[in-house]
């Protein structure tokens, strides 16, 4: 019995039994396996015993992989990197939800104590036509980069900037922009959307840049280009709201309204600008 076990079990709901010992789970996993983008895929059933309740979801997959390697089975491929919920690399469908059952939590921050002993967990990759499966649970999300490249920036070549305090930004505008800019680009919005639409991702970047004074000169060009690039890869929003629910950063659906408004204004304004030149 350690000195800290009392403190450890004081908070309820952690992965410890009353006497401070780690709770071990036995899980029935159904994990999607697919050798390559054009290979057939299917579920691998894994009976995972002795999973510590305190480990994260990805660490659970690490443990499963260690065992697969012992059995000479190639480990499961899954994308991951920072494991602290900010890089946006990880993300799988867990029991039919992107990033699993916890709200505002990326897969890497989901911990196994949220599951019960004996639970069956189905794990699949994020799916959309423009997110082709690379292997197993890993998908290719480069279409997001294409959207950013088409206009998700403010052109400010290095060295041209005026003093940072030259352009004041009202605090509520800066806060609004930051709310949108919190997007980590994980793709959960697309995976959750019944239409495979990328409206929330695109709206988050537009919402960030289009409200800032620095973003005004390119506002309409940006809105038109980003939306049209988005549409060339992804489906069409029908305002279900699944994206916001799946978003680990809880980006608001309201940004999509901003996107719609800015896009239509852009279509009008860009025409007028074009006709004047």
């Amino acid at each position: 019995m350690s000195a800290g076990s009392g403190g450890g079990s004081a908070g309820s709901g952690n992965g410890r039994s009353g006497n401070g010992h780690q709770v071990m789970l036995r899980l029935k996993l159904r994990i999607w396996r697919q050798a390559g983008p054009d290979e057939p895929g299917g579920f691998l059933d894994v009976d995972a015993e002795g999973i510590p309740a305190d480990c994260s979801f990805l660490e659970m997959l690490d443990i499963v992989n260690e065992r697969l390697i012992t059995d000479d089975i190639e480990p499961i491929t899954f994308a991951h990197d920072c494991r602290e919920g900010i890089c946006g690399t990880c993300g799988v469908m867990i029991n039919g939800r992107p990033h699993g059952p916890e709200k505002a939590t990326a897969t890497c921050q989901l911990h196994m104590r949220k599951f019960r002993d004996g639970d069956e967990i189905t794990i699949e990759p994020f799916r959309a036509a423009s997110f082709p499966v690379v292997k197993d649970l890993m998908v290719d999300r480069r279409a997001f980069d294409r959207i950013i490249e088409s206009g998700g920036f403010i052109s400010a070549p290095t060295g041209t900037a005026p003093d940072a305090n030259e352009i004041p930004v009202p605090k509520d505008v800066a806060d609004f922009a930051m709310d949108a800019a919190a997007c980590i680009g994980c793709g959960a919005c697309v995976a959750a959307c019944p239409n495979s639409a990328a409206q929330l991702f695109t709206a988050a970047k537009l919402g960030h840049l289009n409200v800032l004074p620095q973003g005004q000169p390119e506002r309409w060009r940006r809105a038109e280009a980003m939306v049209e690039t988005m549409e060339s890869f992804f489906g069409s929003c029908t305002n279900h709201g699944e994206c916001t629910e799946a978003c680990p950063k809880e980006i608001s659906l309201d940004f999509i309204a901003v996107l719609n408004r800015d896009y239509l204004k852009a279509k009008v304004k860009n025409r007028r600008l074009a006709s004047q030149t």
Binding site: G41, R127, A129, N195, S196, A197, G235, S236
Partner: peptide
């Protein structure tokens, strides 16, 4: 139709 083409059917053995 746009959405249908954007949402793949899983590449599955069955």
């Amino acid at each position: 139709e746009i959405s249908r083409r954007s949402s793949p059917k899983a590449n599955w053995v069955s």
